[in-house]
Amino acid sequence: MRQALVIANWKLNGDTALLKDMAEHFHHVDIQEQVNVVICPPAVYLKTAAVLFEPSGIELGGQNCSEYGSGAYTGEISAEMLRDIGCEYVLIGHSERRALFAETDEMVAGKIKQAQQCNLRPVLCVGETLAEREANAVESVIRGQLEKALGEADFNNLVIAYEPVWAIGTGKTATPEQAQEVHKMIRDWVASKAPESAQKLQILYGGSVKADNASTLFHQADIDGGLIGGASLDTEQFDAICQAAKDI
């Protein structure tokens, strides 16, 4: 059995007040034995988050890491630095990083390698654009992203998040059937590379997940939880999404 996993990606949002509010809320919510909950705030808040969330058992993740381990790379944050301040996870290859900051598949592969070398669990984000879906290229696009990113990866220390680009921050959500179809395809691809890991691997759905659609999505056979954007900035709504994941 795979344990449910819900990850909050705050992106360029949030502040100390939100951290305190959410930490206080989850300190009184007994959920960790049934759902792994991870918060990915902006990097400047990670150390504060580590202190505030420790009593609740909520884990931390970085939103990104460098493909380099150290050196003259001003503004970069290494995987080792994230691990050093208490992170367990790191998001890699999010569509916003690919589209807005020109991250290539080769860069994504380098970041995954760095993360795994530092005992961080990378959360590889994959997904297609609306044009690619309408061209019936979903499978080829996502298989290509997987192949290029995971050629040297350890499948036992990995999470994959399927986020259709057309559903991120748009209010549009893949139907449960659409999401399940892609999740199964991803699991089948992993099985072809690492059969012993495929059924253990957590595969998350992301893309306008909210409290009112989380349960239906999470009840699909190959969806193990969610990578949550905007809804993770509302403590009550994020808690409702985590509660929905308890029943997977």
Rank of each mutant, 00 (worst) to 15 (best):
A135I: 07
S140F: 03
A149R: 14
I92V: 15
C118V: 01
N119V: 03
A115S: 10
L130Y: 06
E103N: 06
A115E: 09
I112W: 07
A102I: 05
A137R: 10
I112Y: 06
L120Y: 08
E134F: 02
I142R: 02
Q117D: 07
L120M: 07
Q116T: 03
R97Q: 12
I142S: 01
L100H: 10
P122H: 08
K148P: 05
R98G: 02
I92K: 06
E132C: 00
L146M: 11
R143K: 15
K148V: 01
C118A: 15
A137G: 01
A131M: 12
R143N: 13
F101M: 12
E128A: 00
M107A: 02
E147P: 04
N136E: 15
E103G: 03
L124V: 13
A149N: 12
L146T: 03
G110T: 07
Q114K: 13
N136Y: 08
K113T: 09
T129A: 07
V141C: 04
I142C: 04
L120R: 08
V126M: 11
G144R: 13
I142L: 09
D105K: 11
Q116M: 05
K148Q: 15
T129P: 10
A135Q: 15
Q117Y: 02
N136R: 11
E139A: 12
K148F: 04
I92C: 07
Q145S: 08
E103W: 11
E134M: 07
A131F: 06
F101V: 04
K113Q: 11
S95P: 06
A149Q: 14
R121M: 14
R97Y: 03
V138E: 09
N136Q: 14
L120V: 07
G93V: 05
T129K: 08
R143Q: 14
L100Y: 12
L100F: 10
A135Y: 07
Q114G: 00
V126A: 05
Q117H: 08
R143S: 07
R121Y: 00
V141M: 07
G127Y: 11
C125D: 02
G144H: 13
M107Q: 12
K148M: 12
M107V: 13
M107N: 02
E132M: 00
A99N: 12
A137Y: 00
R133V: 04
G110R: 14
P122M: 08
G127S: 10
E134G: 00
Q117R: 11
C125A: 02
C118E: 13
R143Y: 15
